[in-house]
């Protein structure tokens, strides 16, 4: 229990430092753009691939169910809602946490055990500002973009299956989506993606930063960073969904 509270406390402190130093001088903008390329650009193919197959599989399963009750016209909006609000942000978060988060923890962990972080400190460079802040900011900005790509690709794949193979009407497919999906549904997913980006980048940078030991230590912290990130993404998904819904309902009530 003591260890749990210690972990939560130290991660919170690391997170506040990373955010506080994001816009401190000297500017780390070039580093941030480099990290955005690594987190974003290099993840596009795997996100597209996941989006296509998620869209196809989900559409087919929902079609089978809705066909039993003669409601196949609602396959489009049901798939869209599931993807925009839940599957796109969660799967994007999990995939990028495993791919980029693991790499972040391993890289920073290696820098720790090979004294590169000590070298930064003795050169008068704040290692959190240099290593963590640009990565966290890059992840926060990039994850919603990747989530948007996932949304587009998955819904296009769904249309492809529903219209060309399951003989649903294209106009009805899109009309029902327009009718049932509100901009806030898409926004909810994008906001969640940004929160997941913040979560995995902070957790992976922090675990890497406090690596102890040699190669085994780096392996352990990489594993720890990825596992903690994934669990947190799944747990936070429920929490953030409810917070966003609460926020929107409060806004609408005023």
């Amino acid at each position: 229990m003591k260890k749990f509270f210690y972990e939560v406390g130290s991660t919170t402190l690391f997170f506040t430092d990373s955010v506080r130093l994001m816009f401190a001088k000297p500017s780390r903008m070039p580093d941030m753009i480099r990290h955005m390329k690594f987190i974003g650009n290099d993840s596009v193919i795997i996100i597209c691939l996941t989006g296509v197959f998620t869209g196809l599989a989900m559409s087919y399963q929902i079609y089978i169910g809705f066909n039993l009750v003669n409601a196949t016209n609602l396959v489009g909006p049901t798939v869209a809602l599931g993807i925009f609000k839940e599957l796109a942000p969660v799967l994007t978060g999990l995939i990028v946490a495993a791919r980029a988060g693991g790499a972040m923890a391993a890289q920073i962990g290696t820098m720790r055990v090979s004294e590169q972080i000590d070298a930064l400190e003795v050169m008068g460079v704040n290692p959190i500002q240099y290593l963590s802040s640009p990565r966290v900011l890059a992840a926060v900005l990039t994850l919603p973009l990747l989530c948007g790509i996932f949304d587009i690709v998955a819904i296009q794949a769904s249309e492809l299956l529903c219209v060309n193979l399951l003989d649903l009407d294209k106009a009805i497919f899109w009309n029902k989506i327009e009718l049932w999906i509100r901009p806030r549904d898409v926004m909810e997913g994008l906001i969640k993606a940004a929160v997941f980006g913040l979560t995995f980048a902070t957790v992976c940078c922090k675990t890497g930063f406090y690596t102890k030991g040699g190669a085994k230590g780096v392996g352990d912290t990489t594993n720890k960073g990825v596992v903690y990130s994934m669990v947190l993404i799944i747990v936070l998904n429920l929490l953030v969904s409810n917070l966003i819904r609460l926020y929107f309902s409060l806004v609408e009530s005023f």
Binding site: T110, M111, S114, E115, Q116, D118, A119, E121, V122, M123, G124
Partner: peptide, 19 residues
């Protein structure tokens, strides 16, 4: 302290170059 560290140079055991 940062300004002071700029007046110090350190050669680490394994050089600690940024790889």
């Amino acid at each position: 302290l940062i300004a002071l560290r700029c007046q110090m140079g350190v050669l680490f055991q394994h050089a600690a170059l940024f790889d």
